[in-house]
Amino acid sequence: MAVSYTALETALGNHLRAIPGVTHIAWPNVPFTAPKTALWVRPTLLAARAATLTYGTSSVSGFPGVYRINVFGPKGQGIAPVSKLVDDIINAFRAASIDADGINIEVENAWRSSSLSDDLYFQITADISINFIS
């Protein structure tokens, strides 16, 4: 089966879009105006180098990566709203079985990183470690 990163990103994006509380999404290369008073997210697929996996006399290619989701909230309103949405995103991906045009996407792990802040927004990142085999 041919590898389709387009199908992979579409499936991950559809899963993200279905999570309650995820209402404003800054998709890659799409114009977006960040809301000043609401939470919003920015997903990015960080694909890693494919690896050849050998099973007996057969081999397949494994495609690992990280689906990074930056979650933003208005600065000065505390950590709780952003932190809760990050928790909801992590839990939704951990419990997921995601399919992309017949390719099963395995969620290997999910975690949050440290928080960041700038003049307008407070941010926490959710990292979703994924793998699929072709």
Rank of each mutant, 00 (worst) to 15 (best):
R49T: 12
S97K: 14
A38N: 15
Y55L: 10
D127Y: 05
D87V: 00
S113I: 14
S83N: 08
A92K: 00
L116D: 10
L85N: 10
S134K: 03
R49P: 05
D88Q: 03
P81F: 01
V66F: 08
G102R: 08
G65V: 02
I124K: 08
S58Q: 10
A50L: 04
T44W: 09
V66R: 09
F132D: 05
Q123V: 11
R112G: 06
Y121C: 09
N91M: 03
G62H: 06
G76N: 04
T125S: 10
S61D: 14
L45T: 09
E106H: 11
D119A: 14
V107C: 02
V66H: 01
L46S: 13
G62P: 02
A48M: 12
L53I: 14
V82S: 07
D118R: 15
L46M: 10
D87W: 00
Y67W: 09
Q77A: 09
D99Q: 12
T125M: 05
S83T: 08
L39C: 08
I90H: 00
T57E: 05
I89G: 00
P64D: 03
N131S: 12
A51G: 12
F72T: 03
W111I: 01
G76R: 02
V60P: 01
D101M: 08
G65M: 01
V82P: 08
F72V: 04
L53S: 14
A96Q: 10
G76L: 03
S129P: 06
G56F: 04
T54M: 06
L85F: 05
Y55M: 09
Y55I: 08
T57P: 06
I130Q: 05
A48T: 11
G65P: 04
A126C: 04
G62L: 09
S83F: 02
V71P: 00
I98A: 11
T37S: 10
D99R: 14
K75Y: 08
N131A: 15
G102P: 04
R42P: 07
I133N: 04
S115A: 14
I130K: 04
V66N: 08
I98C: 13
I128S: 02
R49L: 12
V41T: 12
E108A: 04
V86A: 03
D101K: 10
S117T: 15
V82N: 01
D88V: 00
A100H: 11
D99E: 12
D119N: 09
N104G: 13
N131K: 06
D118Y: 15
P43G: 05
S61P: 02
V107Y: 06
Y55Q: 12
G62E: 09
S114R: 14
D127Q: 11
V107Q: 02
S97V: 15
G56P: 01
A100S: 07
L120T: 13
L46W: 10
V66S: 09
I124W: 02
S129V: 11
A47K: 11
Y55D: 13
A80H: 05
Y55N: 05
S117Q: 14
A126K: 00
I124E: 05
W111G: 01
I89D: 00
L45R: 07
I130P: 02
N104V: 12
P64I: 06
K84C: 03
N70R: 12
E106G: 12
A47F: 06
A80N: 12
I98G: 12
A92G: 02
N70T: 06
R42C: 07
V66W: 01
T125F: 02
T57W: 00
